[in-house]
Design a binder for these strands. Sequence first.
DNA 1: AATATGATCTTCT
DNA 2: GAAGATCATATTT
Length: 201
Amino acid sequence: MLKRRFYSRHSPLVAPELIGKILVRKLDDLKLIRGIIVETEAYTGSDDPASHAYRGLTPRTQVMFGKAGIAYVYFTYGFHNCLNVVTGKLGEAEAVLIRAIEPIDGIEFMRKQRKNPIKDLDIANGPGKICQAFAIDRDLNGLDLTRMDSPLFIDEPTTEKVQRKVVSSSRIGIRNGFDKKWRFYDEESQFVSARANIISS
DNA sequence: AATATGATCTTCT
DNA sequence: GAAGATCATATTT
């Protein structure tokens, strides 16, 4: 399990290192849902016009200003939740958005969470889809991902491939801050988000 | 293959 | 009141 030391750094540094790591979700019945992170985006605070924290602390962005290694889950477009991990030093308002995942374990569960027949490629290739597949909602906002008993955390890969070809681009779905190349993804993965493919083509 | 639209919630102006 | 770190479906090229 990744420790707080890993998260307590500048988000554009943490985001590319999360590619290839394993997101793990523990359900009530002790079932394990696992997948490889293949796409992330870094956000910072007052210097990043694309960030929720750009205009300072608000009720929604409160956890971004807190300790690293905490989940920041927000609700967007009236429909979807998105999962971030808080990074940086205390008070710095940084986070990494998890944008796409390659499912490994609990695929049948994920399929049920989403829409029943659905291709493996479409289970978690987008931030809203990840939260559906992994049963993540705002109840998990503020959760500490570095505690042993946490129902959600990030692991080092074990049997999975460790070396990834990580490349960067502009972030997706934002109007400002296009100059920053803070979206990172595994160039060889088929599981990156669908919207990314549309925009970059 | 590209573009449009509906769903409909939260936050900040 | 408008915009938003989205997604699925429908409609048009």
